[in-house]
Design a protein around this nucleic acid. Structure first.
Lengths: 228, 228
DNA sequence: GTTGCGCCTTGACTTAAGTCAAACTTCAAT
DNA sequence: ATTGAAGTTTGACTTAAGTCAAGGCGCAAC
């Protein structure tokens, strides 16, 4: 498929002219990764950023003892690694595919040259960074001010990962990875799943969670209630 | 003092021409706040962003039970509230002065108009947002992967709040506020201060902390060692 | 099919850090 | 200097969640 039309369909590049998309296409590099492949590691020198075309990539931090905190899971259309382009030289976290993935890579220097000439591109980029900042803020809030059941309830309510039925959440990742995203460990998540099922907040399947008591989950997520 | 020269001295506006600084000056509004005054609260509608001239402002989240997580403490020259200008309509956190403060306020619409015409201003803004993102990433890492002594050790090593002697940290905020910044509560911080003093990592004063064993602190912050 | 390897669950135990309550210190304002 | 409020410390207690270890489940490959 033609790279210009691929680029025109990416949210970050919304509103750009055909010609601007062509200049972006001229500097973009396609890359393919298999499952469980590392794109970069924390501390690596940054020479550009990525946009996912297909697949799934996690951005994460590892503790020396091996615990993993996932900062974000990126899907098709989402950019990552941009902050390192504008701020510093090295990546503050690591990136690894969770599934076979195709991405576009934009080399740093050529991209910075383009962005200085395209006000709407830089405004788009500012909007994306700002939204990322907001999400991280909410992760900090969860980690610091909520208990694990509250974090999980918030995830169910606001992750937007439902299919047709708004009450059925498609996890799309393993419960191990979900634990890492919630800032906990698989054992704890498993126990909470069990308790929340017993208390009829949810019905937990292998790959889906069904919401039974939306209001109850809201109370849990806001700390107005706790599991007994 | 003349507003154009004030603006020219602000890091966010570095590299702008005299004329560009004048247009910024034309839209900026000076505001003064006394101690412990709220600038905005989480959820408020955003109509612009701020830059501190003098004083100190904390950006924070509150849990329903009243625990406070400080996201950042801003000092002179630092902008805040910008993310809401580019991403959404409402502030994701609250802001309150920790001391009497003078700030510049930039109304949203006029500023967005200016930034579309000034590539170097938008690059500066991108750099600031990216750095903010990096700091939040590191806060997430601390909260999720480190214990409180490790967070505090990292704060001592990397906050950059030393005066002449690089081994003496000027806190500049109350220990209550520091606890909020580290994602804990005053009692816990107090106990850790005591233990770290007993074990000769630091010497704790009212307003300063003296570093006695830098390497030990590094080991604590990286999880290679723990308090006994 | 059967084998094997991740993924997931469960139980028993440990522990870091929070809660509650009381007392002490500091400091700004009268 | 006196007062009072805020900041800080300490002790006793509770608890959420992590660790360790064992066993079960499920899917993919042979």
């Amino acid at each position: 498929m033609n790279i210009t039309s691929i680029i025109a369909a990416i949210p970050l590049f919304e509103g750009l002219t055909q010609q601007q998309c062509e200049s972006l296409g001229a500097i973009a590099v396609r890359r393919n990764y298999s499952r469980q492949q590392s794109l970069f590691s924390e501390g690596d020198e940054s020479n550009g950023f990525y946009i996912i075309l297909t697949g799934k990539v996690k951005i994460f931090k590892l503790s020396p003892e091996g615990k993993e905190q996932i900062l974000h899971i990126m899907g098709p259309g989402e950019p990552f690694g941009e902050a390192a382009v504008f701020a510093g030289e090295h990546f503050p976290a690591s990136a690894r595919t969770l599934a076979e993935s195709k991405v576009l890579f934009f080399p740093r220097l050529s991209f910075v040259a383009l962005i200085t000439k395209n006000p709407s591109l830089s405004l788009n980029m500012l909007a994306f960074l700002s939204r990322r900042l907001r999400r991280l803020t909410s992760l900090v809030e969860d980690l610091s001010l909520k208990e694990v059941p509250g974090r999980f309830a918030a995830y169910l309510l606001y992750s937007g990962k439902h299919k047709n039925d708004p009450d059925v959440i498609e996890l799309g990742i393993s419960k191990n990875q979900l634990a890492g995203l919630l800032g906990t460990i698989p054992e704890t998540l498993s126990r909470i799943l069990k308790r929340m099922s017993q208390e009829k907040f949810i019905k937990a399947g292998v790959r889906h969670i069904q919401i039974l008591d939306r209001e109850g989950l809201r109370e849990l997520s806001e700390g107005r209630r706790r599991l007994s």
